[in-house]
Design a protein around this nucleic acid. Structure first.
Length: 592
DNA sequence: ATAGGGTTAG
C-alpha cells in the first residue's frame, strides 16, 4: 500500500503547524514543506495558505502566486479568508480571484466558493449587483439540489437587501432547513421594521420550526426577542424569556442585549435592569450598555442614563456612535442640557470621534427642547454636513414648543423642500398658528397641504386581539400568554384602504398579485390578508380574498383553521375558482 | 484529506 503524504503524518510539520501563529514559524514550516517535496501537493499548501492568511495575508498570497495551477480548494481558502477580513479592498481582491476562476479554462466555482462571496455582497450595497450575478452563477454552475450553505448564504443575501418575498420563496423550496437556515429566515422577518406584520410572521415561523423538530439556539432566540421588541409584544417576549430559562439556552451577550432592548421597549424597565445586572461582566459590552442606556432614556431617567454611561467608561469600554446618540437622547428628554453638551464636546476632544449627522441632530434637539433656539440654529448652520429632515423637524418642534413662529416658518420651508409629502410637517406649523389664533395662517397651511396633494392620515393606536388570534397564527395552543397580541392599526388601515375595504359588506379585496412586488408569490400574503380581514371587521359574516395568481404553499390548512376557530365563512377567489371555507372544511367551486 | 451560511443597540 502506498504511504500517504499527509501533513499530519509528518511529525515535525505537525507540531510546528499546531502552534504556528507568527511569520517565523510559518517560514519554518514552509521551508520544511519545500525540502520534503510536499510543496507539490495541493493539500499541504492549502493548509499553509489557510494558516498564513489568518495573520499574514501577504505571505499567503506569495505562496499562492508561486503555485503554477492552484486548485479550486486553494482559491476557496483564499477567498474565504479575504472575505472574513471585512475590508473593502480585501473584498475587491476576493472578487478578482473569483474572476480568475471564471476565466481559467480548467476551473469552475463549486458549492464552497459561493457562501463567502454572498457574505461579501452583504457588506456594502454597492456589491448588491454582484450578488444577483452570483445567483445566476449558482444556477449555471451547480446542480440542484443545492446544499444548505449555498442556499443559506443566498437567503441571507436577499434578506439583507429587504427582498423578503423572494427570500421566503427560496426558503420554501429548501427541503429540510437546518438550524442556521431557520435562523436566517427568522432573523430576516424579525428585522423588517417597516412592516409590523413581518416580525409577527417570525413568531409564526418559529412554530413551524418546532413542528420540524429543529432545536432552537441562541441565534434563534435573538431573532424572536427582537421580533417581540418591534411588535411591542411584552407577553410574547416574556414567553421567549421563559423558553430560554426552561431550555437552558445561554444568556450570552447577544441574547442578553436583545432581552434588555425588548423589556425596555415594552415598558418593563425593571426587568431590563434585572437582565442587565445578571449578565456576566464579560458579556456586558458596548452594545449591551447602549441598550440599557437607551432603556433609561426611553423611560425619562436622564440621570441614570448618564450615570451608566460613566460607569461604562470606567469599565474601560469604548463608547461608539450609538452610545453618544442614546446618551444625548436621554439628556435632551430629561432636560440635562449641560451634560448633553459636555458629552457632545467630549466626542471629539476626549474620544477622538468625529460627530456625525445624528449627533448634530441630538445636539440641536437638546438645545431646542431647552429653549436655547438661537444656539440650536447656529449649530444647525455651522454643521459640516447638510442637515436632513429629522434635524429641521426637531427645530420646528422646538420652535413650536417655545412659540417662535419665525423660526418655525423657516424650518417648515426647508422641510417642504426635503419631504413635500409628509403631512406631519404641515400639521406642526398649523397647530402652532392655531395656538396663537392666527386662523388665516392656519388656513394658508391647509391650502398649502392641498396644493401639494397631501392628506392627513388618521392617527393610530394599539389594538388588542384575543388569544384565538395568536393561537391560529402560531398554532401554539399551550401559550401561557395568548391573551394579547399587538398590531399597529395604521398599517391595517392603510392596507385596507389600498385594497378597497368596504365596511358595509365586510369584504376585503386583497390582490395577491399586487402584494408581491418581487414577482414571486408566497403564501404568507394570503395568511396576512386573512388576518387583516379578521382584525378589521370582527363582526363580518364573510371574508372574501381575491387572488390573481396561484399562491405557493398550502394556505388551505391555515384558512380552514380560521374558519373553525372564528366560526366564519371565508371565500377565497383564486382566479377561476372559489374556495369556500366553513367550519374547518373547504369546498371548491368553479365559477364559470 | 483541505475550503463554505446565521445573533445585539438609536
Amino acid at each position: 500500500m502506498k504511504p500517504k503524504n499527509h501533513i499530519f503524518n509528518h511529525p515535525t510539520l505537525q507540531t510546528l503547524q499546531q502552534k504556528c501563529n507568527n511569520l517565523n514559524n510559518l517560514k519554518q514550516i514552509h521551508a520544511q514543506i519545500v525540502t520534503t517535496g510536499l510543496s507539490l501537493q495541493t493539500y499541504c499548501l492549502s493548509h499553509l495558505i489557510n494558516i498564513s492568511s489568518k495573520f499574514n495575508l501577504t505571505y499567503a498570497f506569495t505562496i499562492f502566486n508561486h503555485i503554477p495551477n492552484p486548485s479550486i480548494f486553494l482559491y476557496n481558502t483564499l477567498i474565504s479568508s479575504l472575505v472574513n477580513q471585512n475590508n473593502e479592498n480585501k473584498i475587491h481582491l476576493a472578487f478578482s480571484l473569483y474572476n480568475k476562476i471564471l476565466t481559467h479554462k480548467n476551473l469552475q466555482p463549486n458549492s464552497f466558493t459561493f457562501p463567502s462571496l454572498f457574505k461579501a455582497c452583504c457588506s456594502n450595497p454597492s456589491w448588491f449587483q454582484y450578488g444577483l450575478l452570483l445567483h445566476t452563477h449558482v444556477l449555471k454552475f451547480l446542480k440542484p439540489p443545492f446544499d444548505l450553505f449555498v442556499q443559506g448564504s443566498l437567503l441571507n443575501f436577499y434578506a439583507k437587501y429587504g427582498k423578503l418575498c423572494l427570500c421566503r420563496y427560496l426558503f420554501d423550496q429548501i427541503d429540510q432547513p437546518d438550524l442556521a437556515t431557520w435562523n436566517i429566515i427568522l432573523g430576516a422577518y424579525a428585522n423588517s421594521f417597516d412592516d409590523n406584520v413581518f416580525p409577527l410572521e417570525a413568531l409564526c415561523l418559529f412554530c413551524d420550526m418546532q413542528v420540524a423538530k429543529v432545536t432552537a439556539n441562541e441565534v434563534t432566540i435573538v431573532a424572536l426577542v427582537s421580533a417581540c421588541s418591534s411588535l411591542g409584544a411584552l407577553s410574547h417576549g416574556f414567553w421567549v424569556h421563559c423558553f430560554v430559562l426552561r431550555n437552558k439556552v445561554m444568556v450570552n451577550r447577544f441574547v442578553g442585549t436583545a432581552l434588555v432592548d425588548m423589556y425596555s421597549k415594552c415598558g418593563c424597565l425593571n426587568l431590563a435592569c434585572q437582565v442587565f445586572d445578571r449578565m456576566f461582566e464579560r458579556d456586558r459590552d458596548t452594545f449591551c450598555y447602549n441598550a440599557m442606556i437607551a432603556g433609561f432614556a426611553i423611560h425619562g431617567y436622564g440621570n441614570r442614563a448618564v450615570e451608566l454611561y460613566r460607569k461604562m467608561k470606567s469599565k474601560g469600554l469604548v463608547p461608539d456612535d450609538a452610545t453618544f446618540v442614546v446618551t444625548m437622547f436621554a439628556c435632551s428628554h430629561a432636560g440635562l442640557v449641560e451634560e448633553g453638551l459636555e458629552i457632545f464636546k467630549s466626542m471629539k476632544e476626549v474620544h477622538g470621534v468625529e460627530p456625525k449627522l445624528e449627533h448634530y441632530g441630538c445636539l440641536i434637539d437638546l438645545l431646542g427642547r431647552a429653549g436655547r433656539l438661537k444656539e440650536a440654529e447656529n449649530w444647525l448652520q455651522d454643521m459640516p454636513m447638510k442637515p436632513n429632515a429629522v434635524i429641521w423637524r426637531s427645530l420646528l418642534g422646538a420652535a413650536r414648543l417655545h412659540g417662535n413662529l419665525d423660526m418655525g416658518e423657516v424650518a417648515l420651508r426647508k422641510l417642504i423642500e426635503l419631504e413635500p409629502e409628509t403631512s406631519g410637517n404641515y400639521v406642526l406649523l398649523s397647530n402652532m398658528y392655531a395656538s396663537v389664533a392666527r386662523w388665516n395662517d392656519v388656513k394658508r397651511v391647509r391650502m398649502l397641504m392641498k396644493h401639494h396633494g397631501v392628506n392627513k392620515l388618521p392617527g393610530f393606536s394599539l389594538v388588542e386581539i384575543n388569544g384565538a388570534m395568536h393561537e391560529f397564527l402560531t398554532g401554539d395552543k399551550t401559550h401561557p400568554f395568548s391573551k394579547e397580541i399587538y398590531l399597529k392599526i395604521t398599517e391595517i388601515n392603510r392596507r385596507l384602504q389600498e385594497y378597497g375595504h368596504n365596511a358595509r359588506t365586510s369584504e376585503v379585496l386583497f390582490d395577491v398579485e399586487e402584494e408581491d412586488k418581487e414577482g414571486v408569490l408566497s403564501y404568507h400574503s394570503e395568511r396576512l390578508a386573512i388576518a387583516f380581514a379578521l382584525i378589521a371587521s370582527p363582526s363580518s359574516f364573510a371574508i372574501r380574498i381575491i387572488k390573481n395568481l396561484r399562491v405557493c404553499g398550502d394556505c388551505h390548512a391555515f384558512t380552514k383553521l380560521i374558519s373553525a376557530v372564528y366560526g366564519r365563512d371565508i371565500i377565497v377567489r383564486d382566479r377561476n375558482r372559489f374556495h369556500h371555507f366553513k367550519d374547518g372544511s373547504c369546498s371548491c367551486l368553479d365559477y364559470w
